[in-house]
Design a protein around this nucleic acid. Structure first.
Length: 257
DNA sequence: AATGTCTCCAACCGCCATAGG
DNA sequence: GCCTATGGCGGTTGGAGACAT
């Protein structure tokens, strides 16, 4: 038993909206408002469309003050930063970008920004070995279903692996640069937590780093991250092993907190 | 010029949360 | 507390146009 459909699928039109339909919907909403009921709206507006379809069309295309077209560098920054912090919560990200819709941002991320950030085309070789010399999971592994649960928790947004910039590709044995999205408080519930003060952000291919950077402690016990003025993030002063995982000197490690 | 492949994005689908009876 | 209707959201799809062969 599936859920009852929201409209009679046999009698509603699907597919791209015609200019006439757009005009009908726009005119109706401008004159009468949404009226608190999208399901009833198409009938009142004289449209043979599902209410959900009307809602989507209005929110994503017809609504006033919508921005269409290229995203600015500033918008890129906001999206990157928020994605690093909260993951694919497109509606929340959209709320930080006036005039942009969640659908827009989602499409932009999936088709352009992700490629820009990860810099990967299929068949393009990875910038470093898949073998992680220090036991830290390779960024690619974060996408695998069997990725160790200790690196995520149900209460944490998805972790975001970042490909190393050129600067970091020269680190010892190609050790991985991993920057996790960060918040402003320590979650305290993750197996591995470097973020007493939280922190997070993203490094764009240009090497520029976006995101908040705050102090950190490990599990509330030990200060392991130190700010290095020569570095845009936090660095270990020397190679360290933390809960069985070794980190190289200068490794920037941030974790969602 | 014809055909195949890729990219982009509007729109749909299905799930979940919430409100109201 | 249960059921149903609706809104809202993220993931996915399909088609049109661009590009490559």
């Amino acid at each position: 038993m599936g859920r009852a459909p929201c409209c009679d699928k046999a009698s509603v039109k699907k597919g791209p909206w015609s200019p006439e339909e757009d005009n009908k919907l726009k005119d109706y909403i401008e004159n009468h408002g949404i009226g608190g009921n999208w399901i009833a709206l198409p009938q009142k507006a004289g449209l043979r469309r599902c209410g959900k379809s009307c809602r989507l069309r209005w929110l994503n295309y017809l609504r006033p003050n919508l921005k269409h077209g290229n995203f600015s560098v500033d918008e890129d920054r906001v999206i990157c930063n928020l994605f690093a912090n909260i993951g694919s919560r497109w509606s929340i990200i959209a709320s930080h970008l006036p005039g942009r819709t969640d659908n827009d941002i989602k499409n932009y991320w999936n088709t352009k920004l992700k490629k820009k950030l990860f810099g990967k085309q299929k068949d393009e070789p990875l910038p470093y070995s898949l073998e992680s010399p220090n036991g830290f999971p390779n960024p690619l592994m974060l996408h695998q279903p069997n990725f160790p649960s200790m690196f995520s928790s149900s209460s944490s947004p998805p972790l975001v692996p970042i490909w190393p910039s050129q600067e970091h590709q020269s680190r010892p044995n190609g050790s991985n640069l991993l920057i996790f999205g960060g918040g402003q408080k320590n979650c305290g519930s993750c197996e591995i937590s470097f973020g007493g003060g939280g922190g997070g952000g993203m490094e764009l291919p240009s090497g520029e780093y976006y995101g908040s950077l705050l102090g950190g402690v490990l599990g509330g016990e030990e200060q392991v991250l130190n700010h290095n003025s020569g570095c845009t993030g936090f660095c270990f002063e020397e190679p360290r092993e933390v809960r069985g995982i070794s980190f190289w000197n200068q490794e920037r490690v941030l974790h969602y907190g």
